[in-house]
Amino acid sequence: MTLSVLDLVPVRTDQTTGDAIRASLSLARTADAAGYERYWVAEHHNMPAVAATNPPVLIAMIAGATGRIRVGSGGVMLPNHAPLVVAEQFALLEAAHPGRIDLGIGRAPGTDPVTRYVLRSGATDEDVVNRFGDYVQNVAALMAREGAGLDLRGETFELRATPHAVSVPTLWLLGSSDYSARLAAELGLPYVFAHHFSGSGTAEALALYRDSFRPSADLDAPRTFLTVNAAVAETAEEAERLALPQLQAMIALRTGGALRPQRLVEEAEADPVPAVHQGLQAAMRERWVVGDPKQAAEQLRELAAAYGVGEVMVHPVAGALTGTAADASPAREATLRLLGEAI
């Protein structure tokens, strides 16, 4: 099984943004040394617990701090950006780190309605989301070695994301509904369903993608993998403790609770979720990979077999204990090391 990493660059109650970034750079180096295939960073805005606001900037830092692993976005929320800007950013990253850059694209806003309005300069969802398919194709054309042609007033103007591209990033479509599955199949692109976030509809979306796939010049067969939340420790009991802060954060997100920096483990233990949400917490926990290395490896193998994938992208959600260095995330690093050794 191939293992990869998804990182939201979490910000704990004991961290600054700079601390969180330094912790993620250390996590990326751990993944690189442990043989992981790729390391993707998300795009979220105006969230107290997430520092992954700008994937291209983070990708540049992570690719520069590592030597082998592929680095990419999981993903860039394309309706928030002009296609030419995204194409320029990732063409430049690919030029600096040839053969190591992935461009994962999604269409969700990755934020609250007010921040979405600011990001999109007041444009409505209808203005941008309905043109998502065209925007994806525009990005691909602009990054291509030959560039794209724009017909204007009877003349064709050449547009290129970078002056002399030798290679191009791998383009992936991401989603948590059947829309992106259909579009990826239609365009012959790799596709990833957000199993780590949604937890339902994965099998249906993957079946739709595989059954509807049309080969393209770049991809002759469906290509996908699974994303999953994971906390792994030497003992199952310790892994359960370490998963608690992220579980509580997800409960708050799903139930309209207050969003805040990620708690330390002891803070989470001292303030459990209300009884009315205990069932939701248990149901959410069932979809995560939590346990000792042997248990976690077996869970990953079962998930990979169930969904017919050869690659699993792990979102390491293990929290930190009181006294942890602010610029470190040792439990997240341990999750990656222990899984890598067990698989």
Rank of each mutant, 00 (worst) to 15 (best):
A236W: 00
A236M: 00
A236R: 12
A236C: 03
E237V: 09
E237P: 02
E238S: 05
E238N: 06
A239Q: 02
E240S: 06
R241L: 13
R241P: 02
A243I: 01
A243H: 01
L244D: 02
L244I: 01
L244G: 01
P245C: 07
P245V: 09
P245Q: 08
P245W: 06
Q246N: 13
Q246D: 10
Q246S: 15
Q246E: 08
Q246Y: 13
Q248A: 08
Q248I: 06
A249M: 12
A249F: 07
A249I: 05
M250Y: 11
M250C: 07
M250H: 08
I251W: 05
I251K: 04
I251Y: 06
A252E: 14
A252D: 15
R254A: 15
R254L: 14
R254H: 10
T255G: 08
T255N: 09
G256N: 09
G257W: 04
G257D: 10
G257K: 09
A258T: 15
A258I: 12
A258Q: 13
A258F: 04
L259K: 07
R260T: 13
P261R: 15
P261A: 15
P261I: 00
P261D: 04
R263H: 12
L264A: 10
V265I: 13
E266Q: 15
E266S: 10
E266R: 06
A268H: 03
E269F: 02
E269S: 02
A270I: 07
A270V: 09
D271R: 12
P272E: 01
P274V: 03
P274C: 01
V276Y: 00
V276H: 08
V276G: 01
H277Q: 11
H277F: 14
Q278E: 15
Q278G: 05
Q278H: 11
G279R: 11
L280I: 05
Q281F: 03
Q281V: 07
Q281A: 13
A282L: 11
A282K: 10
A283D: 13
A283R: 13
A283V: 00
A283W: 00
M284W: 03
M284G: 11
M284I: 09
R285V: 02
R285D: 00
E286Q: 13
E286H: 02
E286C: 00
E286I: 00
R287M: 07
R287E: 01
W288C: 14
W288Q: 09
W288H: 12
V289Q: 04
V290R: 05
V290N: 05
G291W: 01
P293T: 05
P293E: 06
P293S: 07
K294I: 11
Q295I: 07
Q295A: 14
A296D: 04
A297S: 15
A297K: 03
E298G: 07
E298I: 09
Q299W: 02
L300A: 03
L300T: 03
R301F: 06
L303G: 09
